[in-house]
């Protein structure tokens, strides 16, 4: 595979490690029997075919992929898609660190939506000095609103708004932390626990109704 083909690798193929929800999987990765067990085939092929990167162990292979992608990011602005999709955002800039375990896909963005964001990032990359996820999304949101493109779904705008709002709230919290908002946080947690519990009960109820029908 020639180097230029890296740009043609689809977003989905850049999910480097299967079933990865947190960094622990990355640390455990050396337990995999072969690199092929967790790398998507085209990423594996890319790594194998790129002579500049010869890595030995499984962990090194992953590092190799990241090095390669990071190299591309620095030079062409490409592998930021990895940042958007992979939970392994160990090179995230500080101000998006707290969201490093939340990926767009896990937030409910579809592949098409992530593709749109990716497309936008490629278009604006060279114009922006700050390429942190939150800045990209904030700028993207302004762009979507200004352009009023009918092809862009309202859901996508709503999702990004949610994400940006959550980020801003968290940053605000860090800035003005005191005992009152500590209490608010605790209360939020209680409310969320209740909401989750209530949803679980509803799911159980509907699941048993469904089972009863079969």
């Amino acid at each position: 595979m020639e180097e230029k083909n890296l740009e043609e690798i689809s977003l989905a193929s850049l999910s480097l490690i299967k079933n990865n929800n947190d960094v622990k999987h990355f640390l455990k990765v050396q337990e995999f029997e072969s690199v092929k067990d967790f790398l998507d085939a085209d990423v594996y092929e890319l790594l194998e075919s790129n002579k500049r990167y010869s890595y030995n162990g499984v962990k090194d292979k992953i590092r190799g992929v990241y090095d390669l992608l990071n190299y591309k990011f620095l030079n062409k602005g490409m592998p930021i898609t990895v940042k958007l999709n992979s939970p392994l955002n160990f090179d995230f800039k500080h101000d998006v660190y707290y969201f490093s375990d939340i990926t767009l896909e896990r937030l409910g963005f579809s592949t098409t939506e992530v593709y749109l964001i990716e497309k936008y990032i490629k278009a604006i990359y060279k114009k922006q000095n700050d390429n942190t996820l939150i800045n990209i999304l904030t700028n993207f949101l302004s762009y979507l609103k200004q352009s009023k493109k009918t092809s862009i779904s309202l859901t996508l705008i709503e999702k990004i708004e949610l994400y940006v709002k959550a980020y801003q709230e968290e940053k605000e919290l860090y800035r003005n932390f005191n005992d009152t908002n500590l209490k608010e946080l605790r209360s939020n947690i209680d409310t969320l626990y209740e909401r989750r519990k209530s949803l679980s009960s509803k799911i159980d109820k509907y699941s048993s109704i469904k089972r009863g029908r079969k």
Partner: peptide, 18 residues
Amino acid sequence: VKEMTDLINKLKLDILEK
């Protein structure tokens, strides 16, 4: 705060999934 916000984020994600 970090621990609590992490927990809140996790709960929000759980809720989204549910």
